[in-house]
Computed example of a mutant assay.
Amino acid sequence: MNYLAHIFLSGDDRRVQIGNFVGDAVKGRAYENYPLGFRKGILLHREIDDYTDHHPVVREAIDMLRADFGRYSGVLTDIYFDHLLARNFRHYSGRSLRRFAWGFYGALILNYRYLPERFKGFLWHFILTNRLVRYASLSGIERSLGIMVEYKNLRIDPGAAIVFFERNQERLQELFDRFLPDVRKMCHLVLEMNANC
């Protein structure tokens, strides 16, 4: 899952959301250096990644992309799923994506001191380009892929990725709609188990 999904799956606690958002940048036991809510989010991030990596529906989506995108199929599946979540966010969450995103951006600013350096480096660009809301448009995900190509050496053609999505969006939507209830249930259980930790 990509940024929007990780935040969305964190429940309403802003510190859990932020921990989940930065989870990739916190390695090993370094999560223990964070306050409790952030720790819960970082650990939830790891649970989501592990669950997603082993889910048969996600494997099916990745296999569908493999012939065209090879080892980047998982990355694209994450981006496509974030797009599908964003464009129907009110349906999945019962609230506006714009309001959700700006509330989260505000929480990031208020908790800036806790962000890993890597996130501090792109935070303002992330907010000012309204990245979470831009996931709802194909041009927005094409731009996100362009950034990944430029800064993360992702070797794919963003235009080709968009064409693939357009040709296969009904199937991808069906896979996403099968996967989302499962990962939401898993996250709910993890958050419930960690409620009193």
Rank of each mutant, 00 (worst) to 15 (best):
V16R: 08
L172K: 06
H54S: 10
N111Y: 09
L189G: 07
L108K: 11
I141A: 02
T77W: 09
H45G: 10
G37T: 12
G74E: 05
R87C: 15
S139Y: 02
Q169R: 15
H45S: 08
Y51G: 03
H45K: 06
D49C: 04
P158E: 04
A67W: 00
Q169C: 11
G23F: 07
A101N: 09
K120V: 06
Y34S: 10
P56C: 04
V75K: 10
G106C: 07
P35N: 11
D12H: 10
L115G: 08
S144Y: 00
E32Q: 15
I42Q: 03
L180K: 03
A161T: 06
D53H: 06
S73M: 07
A136T: 04
K27W: 09
D78R: 12
G103Q: 12
Y80P: 14
N168I: 02
S93E: 13
L65G: 02
A195E: 10
D177Y: 03
L43S: 08
Y3Q: 15
R184I: 01
L175F: 14
F8K: 14
H6D: 15
L154T: 09
L154A: 07
Y51Q: 02
M148D: 03
I127K: 07
V58C: 03
A67M: 00
R178D: 06
Y34C: 11
G74F: 07
G19P: 13
D177S: 09
Q17C: 14
A5S: 15
Y3K: 13
L172D: 02
L180H: 03
A136E: 09
E166D: 03
M193T: 05
Y51C: 05
F165D: 03
S73I: 09
V190D: 01
R14E: 15
R59F: 00
R155L: 07
K27V: 11
D49G: 06
R184D: 01
E142W: 01
E142L: 01
M1A: 15
L43W: 06
F100S: 08
E60W: 00
L172A: 04
K120N: 11
N111A: 11
D50R: 11
L108S: 12
R99Q: 12
D182I: 01
A136S: 15
T77A: 15
R90P: 06
R90I: 09
I141W: 00
H45I: 11
S73K: 08
L97I: 09
A136M: 04
D78P: 13
M193G: 06
L115K: 06
L189K: 09
R184W: 00
P181R: 08
G11C: 14
R39T: 11
I62V: 15
Y92A: 07
I162L: 02
S137G: 05
Y72L: 01
A195W: 04
Y51D: 04
A195C: 02
G19Q: 08
Y3H: 15
L128H: 11
P116A: 08
E170P: 00
K152E: 05
C187D: 02
R99N: 12
F122M: 14
F176Y: 13
L145E: 03
R178T: 02
F122G: 07
M186V: 06
E32T: 14
L128V: 09
L180I: 11
L154P: 08
T129G: 03
F38E: 10
A136Y: 01
L65T: 02
E170M: 09
F122T: 08
E150L: 13
N20F: 08
F119Y: 13
Q17M: 15
S73N: 09
